[in-house]
Design a protein around this nucleic acid. Sequence first.
DNA 1: GGTACCGTATTATTCGACTAATACAGTTAC
DNA 2: GTAACTGTATTAGTCGAATAATACGGTACC
Lengths: 132, 132
Amino acid sequence: MISLAGFPSDGDGPIYLRIVRFIRAGVAAGSIADGDEMPSRRVVSATLGVNPNTVQKAYKLLEDEGLMVSRPGAKSYAVVTPESVEAARAKLRAEEIGRVVSALKTSGMEKSEAMELISRLWDEYEVGGDTE
Amino acid sequence: MISLAGFPSDGDGPIYLRIVRFIRAGVAAGSIADGDEMPSRRVVSATLGVNPNTVQKAYKLLEDEGLMVSRPGAKSYAVVTPESVEAARAKLRAEEIGRVVSALKTSGMEKSEAMELISRLWDEYEVGGDTE
DNA sequence: GGTACCGTATTATTCGACTAATACAGTTAC
DNA sequence: GTAACTGTATTAGTCGAATAATACGGTACC
């Protein structure tokens, strides 16, 4: 059974995404094995103090990514294959990151400037990109 | 008087940000000159079919950025100086990068991971034939 | 000074994302 | 079969951002 130990009590972003991130990290890091039983929606919801549907939203995303399997009535299990591990890592890596670097360097920005800018944007993060 | 010709009837993001972007682009591109008269809030609101306060929200941001000046009762004017042009370009650049950062966050990546990867990729990336 | 425009402030309303409440349906072990 | 779990769907509440309705006060020009 996959443990929720280490799940951050405080974190950035909505709860369902933090759950997704937590499982993705486990798959990517190898701390979750193929066929491991996932805690049920209700167990997770009770543990984290959220609604089962919030967990369902996270589990649905994870299933769509191929990181777990669910079927009505039965328990859910992690899927850890070379493909799913790569999928998890790809998500964590987000290939578009290369475009950030590309765009920034092309614009003639110094590395220190770029890091500062990205750090600030990350914290401020407004859809539409307005800052200040 | 600055013209609204070319203002995109459809676009991404809230209206007030599209107005901001439109003016920023004009300043950055040089199609707006220093001292140019800005259309009043009410004129813009009537032209675009939105509330004057939506325009006010945009104009307030532009004024905070140093791209225009307003004072109660009087007309508003564009401010085009080396500083404001640089400010406009920086904002447009930051906005573009912000979209990518947004995508990374939505995909569940954590800030520390992102910063680390960007730092590493920065050193590996070679400026090639990429333009734009 | 009066009129017509201007910018600004205060207060609703709308709308979508996130979360919750509840009910429904499938699986498994006895 | 039935009890106790499981996953899933439908609907409602909550909160913040975007926009609107309205009112107020300043400036310019005759």
